Simulated scan of single mutants.
Amino acid sequence: MAAAFTNGALVLAAAPDVDRERFFRQLMTYGGIVVAAVPAVVWLVMVVPGWG
């Protein structure tokens, strides 16, 4: 998990000529969607068919 924060910080620091606040919010939104959606998708793919 720490690597994800490090990667996001590096991307934000290296982004030339961007609104850093907006870019940070976009990264946080993406992270929130991933955290919310991936467990549901894994459950649908692995548990519902009986593979997990």
Rank of each mutant, 00 (worst) to 15 (best):
P16N: 07
V34N: 04
V42F: 02
W51S: 09
T6M: 13
A9G: 00
R20E: 14
F5P: 03
V34M: 06
V47Q: 09
W43E: 04
M28F: 03
R22Y: 08
I33V: 15
G52L: 10
V35T: 14
M28E: 02
L44F: 11
A9D: 01
V48I: 15
M28I: 05
A3P: 05
V42H: 03
T6V: 14
A13N: 03
A37W: 07
L44P: 00
L44D: 06
V48E: 08
A15T: 12
W43A: 10
D19I: 08
Y30G: 02
A40H: 05
G52P: 00
V38F: 09
L27R: 02
V11K: 04
A15D: 08
L12W: 01
A4N: 08
Y30T: 03
L10W: 01
D17V: 08
A14K: 11
A14S: 13
T29P: 00
V38N: 05
V45Y: 01
V18W: 06
L12Y: 00
F24D: 01
T29R: 04
A14V: 08
V34A: 08
R22Q: 15
V35M: 14
A4T: 12
M1F: 10
D17F: 10
A37R: 09
V35Y: 10
L10K: 06
V35G: 03
A13S: 07
T6G: 01
A4M: 13
L10R: 08
D19V: 07
A4V: 15
E21K: 13
M1D: 13
L27T: 02
P39G: 02
A36Q: 07
V11H: 02
F24N: 04
